[in-house]
Measured scan of single mutants.
Amino acid sequence: LEELEQFAKTFKQRRIKLGFTQGDVGLAMGKLYGNDFSQTTISRFEALNLSFKNMCKLKPLLEKWLNDAE
């Protein structure tokens, strides 16, 4: 859980630094990986307001997006 919290915090900082909005991330993930995510979902991930199971599902996809974006 602590690792997920740290990743969510780091993800948000890096996303902002790269100049992407939460909506941008959701759209890009849909185009790149075929998984559409709403701005709300990205927001809830960053705020740790998703279930643990959903957080765990999203984390590898967001890590991949972040690596591709950088």
Rank of each mutant, 00 (worst) to 15 (best):
E2G: 03
A28Q: 15
M29A: 04
L18F: 04
E70A: 01
L50R: 01
M29V: 15
E46N: 01
T10G: 09
L27F: 14
Q6F: 08
G30V: 11
K57L: 12
F20R: 06
A69H: 09
N49P: 01
Q39K: 14
N49Q: 13
W65L: 03
E63R: 04
D68L: 08
K57E: 12
E46G: 00
K12E: 09
K64D: 09
G30I: 14
R44D: 08
S43K: 15
E63D: 02
T40C: 14
K59R: 12
F52D: 13
A8M: 03
N67S: 08
L61W: 09
L66V: 13
M55L: 12
L62E: 00
D68K: 11
K12F: 03
K64C: 05
N49D: 15
K17I: 06
I42W: 01
S43Q: 14
N49A: 11
A28P: 01
K57F: 10
S43M: 12
T21Q: 05
M55K: 02
L32Q: 12
L62W: 00
S43T: 12
L27R: 14
S43H: 07
N35Q: 13
G30F: 14
F7S: 02
L48N: 10
K53A: 15
A69R: 14
D24L: 04
Q6N: 15
E5F: 05
M29Y: 02
F11Q: 00
T21K: 07
N35M: 05
F37C: 14
L66H: 02
K12C: 09
E46K: 01
F37N: 02
M55V: 04
Q39W: 12
I16L: 12
L58C: 11
K12A: 13
Q6M: 09
L32S: 04
I42G: 00
D68T: 09
G23E: 14
E70M: 10
R15G: 00
K17F: 09
R44S: 14
K57Q: 11
E3H: 09
I16D: 04
Y33D: 05
Q13M: 11
K53E: 15
N35K: 13
S51P: 13
L18G: 03
T41Q: 10
R14Q: 06
R14G: 07
F52C: 09
W65V: 03
L66W: 02
A69C: 13
T41H: 08
D24A: 08
K17L: 11
Q13W: 04
Q6W: 08
P60L: 07
W65S: 01
E63G: 11
Q6C: 08
E5M: 10
L27Q: 13
K12Q: 10
F37I: 12
W65F: 14
A69G: 05
K59E: 03
L62R: 00
V25P: 01
T10P: 00
L48F: 08
L27T: 08
L1D: 05
P60G: 12
G26I: 07
L1N: 07
L27Y: 05
N35D: 15
N54K: 14
R44I: 01
K12N: 05
Q13L: 12
A8I: 12
F45Y: 05
E70W: 15
A8C: 08
E70D: 10
R14V: 12
T10R: 09
G30R: 14
L18W: 03
R44H: 10
T41F: 06
I42Q: 00
L48I: 14
S38M: 02
W65P: 01
E2C: 04
A47L: 15
I16H: 09
A28H: 08
